[in-house]
Design a protein around this nucleic acid. Structure first.
Lengths: 201, 201
DNA sequence: CGCACAATAGCACGACCGTTCGTTTTATTT
DNA sequence: AAATAAAACGAACGGTCGTGCTATTGTGCG
């Protein structure tokens, strides 16, 4: 009866399949450009069959945004935890992030969602803000650990460094798609090196 | 007869009015979220009346993108030309850009268009790429002039500095809308200062 | 096996989309 | 003022949108 929850194992499986296709579509067309009709076609189902899994388009979009945040979190943040605290882990975050930009050539879902919802109040915007906040905090925490490990100077402002890392990543993201990806990556690496060097002990 | 060009003075005037409203809508909803029906309502005209001025939705979108590029160019790039070559002009570009981000609180049309079209070939993408390229080159040129004026070191890579300025501006743009605009601006200013200082003579 | 219910399909709806067409109003020129 | 061209309107088209509702298919548990 409840429309938004899959109870059987088959239901959960198709829901995962739908979300997988939805993620791919939303990467290309944006979360706002994701339609149930196109999604149903990609999943090999009927519109109403897809619809029943979420109950509303907005619930579907929310699930897709969370899916995007989860994928980035796994590929970049969680993966970096295997590296030792301090500069190794901080460097890992940056490298994995750069690799993420390279490997998702048709666009990062969350990055796209930011400019879709940044000035549009509602639960979708809230989800995007929450994802970015978590993401930023994880980066700042890695910087703080690098300071505590003695890799960066004690007077370093962790939030400031995180802000600048995001800026470099955003520029890389944009340049990779608009101009030459190779050159963009080289410039991003150079910018990161300058940033870390100017604060290292 | 020709649908895309206004020949009388009245025609040109309404076309300007339409583009003005279209610009406002596209800033909020994105260029892809601009519909002729909503635009007609905002302009106080009929759908077909609006449509006749452009001949197709894509032509309208193209005109809106060019409008967005023109407005930014005037408010930031052209305005900075009044400042003396070298650091004064470079600083002016950055400050005017930051002001632009502050004053267009519901979103910058071009910035939004980038993530809408960066992986969607076509004339709209071409227009966005061209606008960003022009914009980037103007910034790099200002950096070069600052080098020639002796304000920045001779071994400074102008393209690299322009890349990093864009990164800081992008981070400011994003943070201003997702988090606290005040803090974002302070962080952006600090990042710019560090960038310029580390290359100044 | 058979029962209960989840999962999916099919169909229809009202709304809005971009676009076309013929007509009418308005502006410019002769 | 008459003639001509531009501009704007209003209605309609075929399509797609998200969303209900009802029926049918399939799964999983007792």
């Amino acid at each position: 009866m409840s429309p938004a929850a899959a109870t059987t194992s088959k239901g959960a499986a198709t829901r995962d399949l739908i979300l997988d296709r939805a993620y791919a579509i939303a990467c290309r067309n944006g979360v706002e450009g994701l339609s149930i009709g196109e999604l149903a076609l990609a999943a090999g189902m009927s519109k109403s069959g897809v619809f029943a899994h979420f109950g509303s388009r907005e619930a579907l979009q929310l699930a897709v945004i969370e899916q995007g945040a989860r994928r980035f979190g796994e590929k970049v943040l969680i993966r970096s935890l295997k590296q030792a605290r301090g500069m190794p882990r901080l460097r890992a975050i940056v490298q994995y992030w750069f690799d993420w930009v390279r490997d998702n050539r048709q666009g990062c879902l969350i990055m796209g969602a930011v400019s879709e919802y940044d000035s549009r109040p509602g639960p979708l915007r809230d989800a995007v803000v929450e994802a970015m906040r978590h993401w930023r905090e994880a980066t700042a925490r890695a910087v703080t650990l690098a300071i505590e490990a003695g890799d960066l100077r004690k007077d370093t402002d962790a939030a400031q460094i995180a802000f600048e890392i995001f800026g470099i990543a955003l520029a890389l993201h944009q340049d990779s798609r608009l101009f030459e990806a190779r050159r963009a990556r080289a410039q991003a690496e150079k910018a990161i090196d300058r940033l870390f060097n100017s604060h290292s002990t």
